[in-house]
Amino acid sequence: MKHNKYLSEADDTFLIYQFISEGPKGLVRKSVIFSDTNVENVYNLAFGDYDPMTDTLDDLSNTNNGDSKKVLATVAATIYTFTEKYPEAWITATGSTKARTRLYQMGIANNLAEIVKDFVIFGYNCKGYWEQFIVGEQYEVYLLTRK
């Protein structure tokens, strides 16, 4: 993705990232977290608005800060940074709602040529198996790893 990106903070293992969205709605702290799954080397990407008062993430809110492309580019960039640190890792990702999952699908489809230079990307289809991402197909979960 060639959009501008936000500068991020990260923990010292590069599993957790935070950046601040800036726009008409003010400053909103967002987090990207790569969480362990039950399978070694497979991490689930969690993304949402971070509440420093409660140390929780909200993946349902719509910030409407006018910077969705910059936010998505920043999230995508954390995947590059994370997999530079953990080159053998697999990453799963899914939206909090079907609409969000479709939004991610559009983001992937619109940037697929760039993504596949460095990653192999799969989708979990309605038939219950992984297939290499096909534009226009509906997927429940996305999975990617470095080539």
Partner: peptide
């Protein structure tokens, strides 16, 4: 192609937590 990061050890406190257990 990654993001420029500033390491902030305060974020270490978020490690190991399950933020969205249903999705996981």
């Amino acid at each position: 192609k990654g993001v420029t990061v500033v390491v902030n050890k305060e974020l270490n406190k978020l490690r190991g937590r399950e933020f969205f257990p249903e999705k996981l």
